[in-house]
């Protein structure tokens, strides 16, 4: 893939309250700071009531024409329902990052799709902040894809995190790094 044609469509999905929207915004903000073209599109309104949340992020080198993602290159999921819904829409050759401490099934997907199960919830609990599982999976994604860094995301975090949560910046930075380290260790990239 040449740099100019770089075009990555990502869906992030899970339960309401897992910080799905924040994760998407953070990814978008990180990419914007790195000089990429970016769109962020959340599911909204009644769609997000009743427990599920998802958002779509597109990152590219050239202007993004369509902000709606139909089939994605990468999927980050934090619950089983989201895996069932968005898993089948992954492109062949795509990437799935899933929180294996919350999803106990083996996804039935095309062989060409790379699956990285990461016990994000457990790792976050180890760090003393179970709410930071979203940061762990994002760190893992960034490390795996490599076009942005977990450190870059940590720097972008204050801009998207509500001021009243800024005391959690250190632990969330740590969670981003922990996710990246997990991928480094287990996936030998």
């Amino acid at each position: 893939m040449t740099a100019d044609s770089f075009y990555e469509e990502i869906v992030i999905a899970g339960f309401g309250g897992q910080g799905i929207m924040l994760t998407g915004k953070l990814l978008a903000q990180t990419a914007m700071k790195a000089g990429k073209e970016v769109t962020y599109m959340p599911a909204y309104g009644a769609e997000v009531r009743g427990g599920t949340a998802n958002c779509m992020v597109i990152i590219a080198e050239k202007a993004i024409v369509c902000p709606v993602v139909v089939r994605h290159d990468s999927l980050i999921v934090l619950n089983k329902a989201s895996l069932n819904k968005f898993g089948p829409r992954l492109k062949n050759g795509g990437l799935l990052i899933m929180d294996s401490s919350l999803i106990d099934t083996e996804p039935q997907l095309d062989d060409s799709i790379e699956i990285i199960p990461i016990p994000a919830n457990e790792l976050a609990v180890e760090l003393g902040s179970k709410k930071s599982a979203n940061m762990v999976v994002l760190g893992a994604y960034l490390q795996k894809r490599g076009y942005l860094t977990a450190d870059g995301a940590a720097q972008a975090l204050p801009a998207v995190l509500a001021r009243r949560y800024h005391k959690t910046l250190p632990v969330n930075t740590e969670a981003l790094r922990r996710g990246a380290e997990f991928v480094k260790a287990c996936c030998k990239v």
């Binding site: 915004k25 978008a28 914007m32 073209e37 970016v38 769109t39 962020y40 599109m41 959340p42 909204y44 993004i64 902000p67 709606v68």
Partner: peptide, 10 residues
């Protein structure tokens, strides 16, 4: 429309 209202772009 709802997409433009909800989406983020620089």
């Amino acid at each position: 429309d709802g997409i433009l209202g909800q989406m983020m772009e620089p």
